[in-house]
């Protein structure tokens, strides 16, 4: 199987413990995430803060060591890859960060920022590296005179373009983008989404796109995975999930997402409460504490993912 495949990924953190640390507790940030990103496709990972979507995306690239589970890329096991294999894999799997202010080194010129990945991976001689950096800069829509300037001289949207250029300069096959447009204004957000659209068309790029915004996901992704408290609760083709959500949480998320149309004011079920802490997750189905349709079984056992339509999986006792 080509592309990325993630099976039963788990990432737990330990907090507290040790001297003055109090009682050690386990934060179950990612409990059970399985997904696959085929070559050239774009998969969205959507959920509210604390659902584990960022941690999952980082664990997939081994920016955090996963606690359990299997991640393969073109059949190579990422967790057990030798250092040499991992270096080659890293070149093919790149990351775009959310905050264009924090993810660039303010003391490094754009030229250095863009040439460094090439240097690290031992690609080309200095002249070739310069050419590749210049080519990628114009591809992301920045002028060549940006090369010798520093991050503080750029606006948020321009910085995000630099972040994208840095990820793409290695010509990766897979880009994991963690909320790449959340920090931007609407007009600039659309510019960046358009840029990512264009880059996707021009190259053979797969995306794992993490976002909390269903509108952005709908625009950009072919397939969507909805996460809640470390679990993927629903996955399937984006359009089906948006137009006909199945899991009660997806329904709530969809109905709570504001639509710019006053004629369409919805009144979703007035459920109380917020996402529970992953340090103390509820028993059974993680959503039962807020679910308007929960029944006894939901409190006792975690429902397994069931296929309700081709390519469409839901983890809920109602199905």
């Amino acid at each position: 199987m080509t592309g990325l495949k993630v099976e039963s990924l788990k990432k737990h953190f330990t907090i507290g413990g040790g001297f003055l640390g109090g009682k050690a507790r386990t934060v179950r940030a990612v409990e059970n995430v399985s997904l696959s990103v085929a070559l050239g496709s774009c998969v969205g990972l959507v959920g509210e803060s604390g659902c584990g979507k960022s941690t999952a995306s980082r664990a997939i690239l081994r920016l955090e060591e996963p606690t359990a589970g299997r991640v393969t890329f073109d059949g190579i096991d990422v967790a057990s890859a030798s250092p040499a294999q991992m270096r080659r894999l890293r070149q093919r799997m790149q990351f775009i960060f959310q905050d264009p202010y924090a993810s660039l080194n303010s003391r490094r010129s754009i030229r250095k920022t863009l040439e460094e990945p090439l240097k690290v991976h031992g690609i080309g001689d200095p002249a070739e590296r310069r050419d590749r950096a210049e080519a990628i800069l114009s591809e992301v829509g920045l002028p060549q005179d940006a090369m010798d300037r520093f991050p503080h001289e750029f606006s948020g949207g321009q910085r995000q373009r630099i972040g994208i250029a840095r990820a793409l300069v290695l010509e990766p096959d897979l880009v994991v983008a963690d909320e790449p447009v959340s920090a931007l204004d609407v007009s600039v957000q659309a510019q960046i989404l358009r840029l990512l659209d264009d880059l996707r068309d021009k190259r053979t790029l797969s995306f794992l796109f993490v976002s909390h915004d269903l509108g952005v996901i709908r625009h950009f992704c072919d397939t969507t995975c909805v996460m809640y408290l470390g679990h993927v609760v629903e996955s399937g083709p984006t359009q089906e999930i948006m137009d006909d959500p199945a899991h009660p949480y997806t329904v709530l998320l969809r109905q709570s997402s504001p639509i710019p149309d006053p004629a369409n004011r919805v009144d979703p079920p007035r459920i109380a409460g917020e996402i529970p802490s992953p340090a103390n997750p509820p028993s059974g189905c993680p959503f039962h504490t807020r679910c308007p349709r929960a029944f006894a079984e939901c409190r006792e056992s975690m429902p397994a993912a069931k296929e309700i339509a081709p390519g469409r999986q839901v983890a809920c006792h109602l199905f």
């Binding site: 957000q189 659309a190 709908r218 639509i259």
Partner: peptide
């Protein structure tokens, strides 16, 4: 410029 959740754009 706003991506919408309720329609395909």
């Amino acid at each position: 410029a706003m991506p919408r959740v309720d329609r395909r754009a």
